[in-house]
Design a protein around this nucleic acid. Structure first.
Lengths: 110, 110
DNA sequence: TACGCACTTAAAGAATTTCGCAAGTGTAGA
DNA sequence: TCTACACTTGCGAAATTCTTTAAGTGCGTA
């Protein structure tokens, strides 16, 4: 029996990689076959495939063979939600920094 | 200028560690000083301190010195929201697995 | 000032993750 | 069956992250 915090760790760890994040962002709008992802993310095909394997393993995406190609999709809308919340946190942190910079400007002026 | 996907990667990477997740879970309810966290997470103090440093660096928590101790808190409610969404995804994945197991049982029976 | 407690920082080795290359599988069409 | 295309898998080297140990800082109290 896996403790909950361990499962959560693995979930977030699966998200903590630039290639995997870009994949999830691309799938945010609609499912896409591997070659479409590859067109947007300029890396070796084998590498993309490995990262897709990690996302699959974490249950974040699903893969469906369609003839010669394989189509990937987010496994649930909640994954999209997680990405959206992350964006909001980032926006929050960014404005925090701007405020900090503004404060520093005031201090320097006075 | 840091690309957005890179910032997002660093955010999730900061979350992808069992000690750091446990800290965030403990801070979910209310701010706590380090020694209270340490009482719940049985590791070396120096190690906890390093992990707290990473959470601080990522902007996920804030630290406030209060006399002899240092009190930590989640930096914004959105961080709590992220944790909550992660919990929901995990719950979703778990039910998915149960369904899968149920299907397998049916197949074996027939 | 000296001591103890609470916490942080630094540095080096251990463990994990990522990357690039080679080889392999599955499907469609000639 | 042969070839081409789309994708996956395996494996060793390189990069990153984590853990351990030791030393250091800041605050309150005697």
């Amino acid at each position: 029996m896996v403790p909950l915090y361990q499962a959560k760790t693995e979930l977030f760890r699966a998200l903590g990689n630039p290639v995997r994040i870009r994949v999830l962002e691309l799938l945010y709008d609609s499912p896409k076959p591997v070659h479409r992802l590859l067109a947007e993310i300029p890396i070796e095909g084998s590498r993309l495939s490995q990262q897709l394997g990690i996302l699959r393993g974490a249950g974040l995406v699903t893969a469906r063979r369609d003839g010669n190609t394989v189509e990937y999709a987010l496994s649930t809308g909640e994954v999209a939600e997680l990405m959206a919340t992350a964006r909001r946190i980032l926006a929050h942190l960014a404005t925090g920094q701007e405020e900090l910079l503004a404060e520093l400007r005031v201090e320097r002026a006075s």
